[in-house]
Design a binder for these strands. Structure first.
Lengths: 209, 209
DNA sequence: GTCTATAGGCCGATAGAC
DNA sequence: GTCTATCGGCCTATAGAC
């Protein structure tokens, strides 16, 4: 039962550092995504990165530090995409919500392994190691909450329940990393993002523009 | 970063066998939910069940067998609830979808640890050990697909995209196990199930009854 | 920065007494 | 069915040469 249906491990340009350090991060990403933090050993990562296990410690102080960097990178890439999408969108809450959901979905289709590690393996970090990513996550959740609040305030959204709707919209995107691409879905990432943006708008009871 | 926000580990009556074997299952459930399969050791489980680690092997042939039983129990409890909900509902696809989503959500609010283990730790099983649960999962997915197809056929649903909508409806429920109950959500399990049923109906573009 | 070698400990699982 | 004791192996991390 594979956890991610995509090809190989990939890091966004901002985090793809290259060199041995980059190979270690990519190896950790692939192995943590597939087997989980505790299911992948230092020796596994070293073998995948084509170095000896002792050499890892010239680049990271511990196995946990490799995971912490991946988890933070995943949260930051996601958050940056959300912010960029909002900056490019207009003032209509419907447009802003659609832009947010599209960016949310695309982060998960474009870097599914990073998303799986960031979401499913964060629990393996100590509270201190998880704190930076947790802070980014709270800011991302705040972006969605703000758009929903604005839409209610302006009377263009008719929410059944604010927090539950926010949780639902977040959930549909997060799960994308675990199932996309499905065999017969017949949607490329951009099309899936559009479909999910439509579903999110329907969930908000958005008035027709 | 806790993976489940609820209280202690709990098994549904059909799986709560009692005795030492039952204590081992409950201990495994709590520890696998919190730390993952590879993050919980045989000795951890034994200590939690108040036996010596060697005694586990009088009840299960391996650590993997403990996980396999939990994963199957989670899938079966979930599937049984879906089937029961459909049996109790009428023929209107809107009623059937609402019943299905309510049951889906309640399975995740009532046994969040079991749901987290079944969804997030199944990947640690060998294909052979995961097969029974995977078969149950496919049948559950089929129930949702059938209700959506029926709704389209009768013209009461107007789906943006069938498979993507099914994935989205499944996703909102699955994630519930990981965040519910949130601090300020202000919804009991039954109320959350109702809200999510409304959101699912909105996603389908259901005609008003 | 990469290597060989290894420390010190925990892992899953088994043997055999009771 | 539960225990004590232990096997053989893999774990993370470090020491020290180059």
């Amino acid at each position: 039962m594979r956890r991610v249906h995509s090809g190989g491990p990939a890091l966004p340009p901002r985090s793809a550092t290259g060199g041995t350090r980059g190979r270690i991060l990519l190896a950790g990403l692939g192995l943590f995504a597939e087997h989980g933090f505790h299911g992948a050993s230092i020796r596994d990562i070293a073998a995948e990165a084509a170095v000896q296990s002792a050499s890892l410690y010239a680049h990271f102080p511990s196995k946990e530090a490799i995971l912490a960097e991946l988890v933070l990178a995943g949260h930051e890439e996601h958050h940056t995409r959300l912010v960029t999408a909002l900056l490019k969108s207009g003032t209509d809450p419907r447009d802003r919500l659609a832009a947010l959901v599209r960016a949310h979905v695309r982060a998960h289709t474009d870097y599914p392994m990073l998303a799986v590690v960031a979401n499913n393996e964060m629990h393996a970090l100590s509270p201190a190691a998880a704190a930076p990513a947790a802070a980014v996550r709270r800011r991302s959740e705040g972006l969605l909450a703000e758009v929903l609040a604005m839409g209610c305030q302006h009377g263009v959204f008719d929410l059944v329940h604010v927090e539950a709707t926010a949780a639902a919209i977040g959930s549909i995107g997060i799960r994308v990393a675990s199932w996309y691409p499905a065999p017969e879905i017949g949607l490329n990432p951009s099309q899936l993002a559009d479909v999910y943006a439509s579903l999110a708008l329907r969930m908000t009871g958005a008035r027709p523009p």
